[in-house]
Design a protein around this nucleic acid. Sequence first.
DNA 1: TCATTAAATAAAGAAAACTACGAAATTCGC
DNA 2: GCGAATTTCGTAGTTTTCTTTATTTAATGA
Lengths: 398, 398
Amino acid sequence: MIYVPSRMGQLNRRALLRQLQRLGVASRAELAKALGMSQPTAGKIVDELLELSVLEEVDLSLTNGREPSPSPETILRGRPGRQLRLNQSAARLLGIQLGVNETSIAGLTLGVPERDEWHFNFSSNGGLHPEKNWEQKLRAAAAQVDAEKLLGVVLSVPGVVDEAANKVLFSPNLHWTEKVDLVSLVQRIWDVPVLLVQEERTLALGHQLANPGEDNFLLVDFGDGVGGAIVVEGRPFVGTLPISGEIGHTPVLGNHRKCGCGAIGCIETLVSTGGLLESFAAASRKKNKSWTDLSAHILENGIEPWLAQTLDAAAVAIAGALNVLGLRRVVITGSLTELPPSVITHLSRAVQAGSMWAKFGSVECLAAPRRRAAGLVAVGIDRLVVPDAIPQKISSEK
Amino acid sequence: MIYVPSRMGQLNRRALLRQLQRLGVASRAELAKALGMSQPTAGKIVDELLELSVLEEVDLSLTNGREPSPSPETILRGRPGRQLRLNQSAARLLGIQLGVNETSIAGLTLGVPERDEWHFNFSSNGGLHPEKNWEQKLRAAAAQVDAEKLLGVVLSVPGVVDEAANKVLFSPNLHWTEKVDLVSLVQRIWDVPVLLVQEERTLALGHQLANPGEDNFLLVDFGDGVGGAIVVEGRPFVGTLPISGEIGHTPVLGNHRKCGCGAIGCIETLVSTGGLLESFAAASRKKNKSWTDLSAHILENGIEPWLAQTLDAAAVAIAGALNVLGLRRVVITGSLTELPPSVITHLSRAVQAGSMWAKFGSVECLAAPRRRAAGLVAVGIDRLVVPDAIPQKISSEK
DNA sequence: TCATTAAATAAAGAAAACTACGAAATTCGC
DNA sequence: GCGAATTTCGTAGTTTTCTTTATTTAATGA
């Protein structure tokens, strides 16, 4: 039996990486001081990460070029520290976003991308054998992506995903992904580690990476469906089941709409884009209303009772989640944020009314853009660069 | 700066203790084999725990006395292992259960008590200064409890409890506990560590300890209020806020009853004992119905619509929690389990209908007795015997 | 040139595990 | 009954990983 030392070091590694994400650029000494570790320790971790080309050294002369005056007070005597940042010069990850309608792929640097930029797009569905179609298009795109020294491929998929087993369990709008082994399909094109990530979890991690310091929140994404993901203490929350943050498929009493998931009365049937448009059409007694019609209507008429009820139902589910999880921050992404701000305001008020913590402190409910690319990077860093082997048992098998 | 090695050892210590809880009695060698660690490691941990008198050695002759035939097949050759178990011969913890109406105290051994046995009871409220009254009665009881070598006092309280800060934040039925520093009050009587634990979390940990192997569930306790607690991967789930598992104060759309918490429409107003009796009285148009009346009525008339609706509302909240947390097991304790089993059956069906995992696998919803004493022991072991210093940062301050 | 800060290197040490060995306590075969 | 085999358990020494302190080398401003 071999002594497996549980890689406690990864913990410091992770802490350093996070600190660097926060600071943007920093020297070894700054990192050491900020983290309260000795310089040799910080230096060693940095060296390892440089070796993996996760970090890169920043040429001071270039930075000075951008920043004209090197800020008179900040000038330190002594040897200047070599500034470091996450590698932004070479793509180390390949991100694939397998959306319900469209698939996008992009080479991703480990530095946080300012906004999502997808290089190639193509339809996710189509043909008698959508999986073959998809593979073919992916292969065509592959030729055009410069994928040197790839750490891995990160693949965001909608539905219920077992990230441990790298399998899609349930995907009402992309049924073919349930039957195909996506990982080995992708690995036939790029022979590197492939990570499957659930869509909303990607968004949550992206939000966290793009907003350093926000380490506890529930993200709820509205679109063709409604999904959620949870970040607690800076880490994505995962239970034992490959389900978590599933906020869209809890039933609403008195709602009898049929849901794509097979159940009846799911929240999703009310507050997804489709659900809202259905209610809108019913309320205005006209068919074929579009999302922009709805937005304009709300801008003109405010929150009408049918909409208020719908939002209240969503708010109850969200507040329930906050109460159960002990959270005080909700991040709303997706189609709901495209409607007039009064919608989020109404939702926010309703969430506060139902949330326990609002009685003691403040509960926030805010709109934010989707940060898919950042999320894929976060997943890549988390699971490829600093894979923390959660030590259940110290020793290995005989 | 001194190297603080993050006490990884506690992890193995905890694993060993848990294994022993599972096995009941075991020798060092058995534990080592079961945990896949070497005998010296297991032996060393056992020695430490014996030193703390957390464990005790079992005299084989005594055990043989109870088990007449030492099971013909199990007879092993070689030197027999010295059997160990959690110390059952001396109370090492003092448990206090501060209930809404009654306070109970008991000396607790670290071995799992078969059932709750409380030595002294007295009223929790009363007088102009209930806290002084309470302290006085506690002091009186203290004289009669043999509290030698106490590891600490574990104090279970209802309401919203900040366990990190050892403070009661909110307690609608025992307001005096919010203003008083319960810890220092108790420490004036017993000068040992005092742990404040939220009531439902105690029950959850008690259930876990009494049912080894159940490491993932949501416990919901019904009584004067409705509260929940979560166990994930064998550990109580705690977010950042001192709130978690709060299932009783999420609003139900269309419910306008006033809740003790100050809000309107909380689930608790429907499914607490008081809430159910109120609905029962309204439905039967008679006042002053008792809990036994209700039970008899259900036994005779089955689940009437008013009750079905109430249970469905609770089920939605529970299913929502399961979906968000990724759990598949609900443990129901308290007054609801005293009603005819059809009530739990109805609730269970409704929970399954609303829970996402039921589409993939099974979701269980079962009644169980309250295990307060076991819960207090679990808390004591967790936070006094094997306090795992979650290593945020490896190094200490300068 | 000197003080000052940054980084690299070397050496030491702590924690927690492991292997190896030997003593103690049994059962089994004769 | 008695030695041999077997199993438990403690001790001693080793290994591994990670971190620290101390020292040296480097780069820069005054």
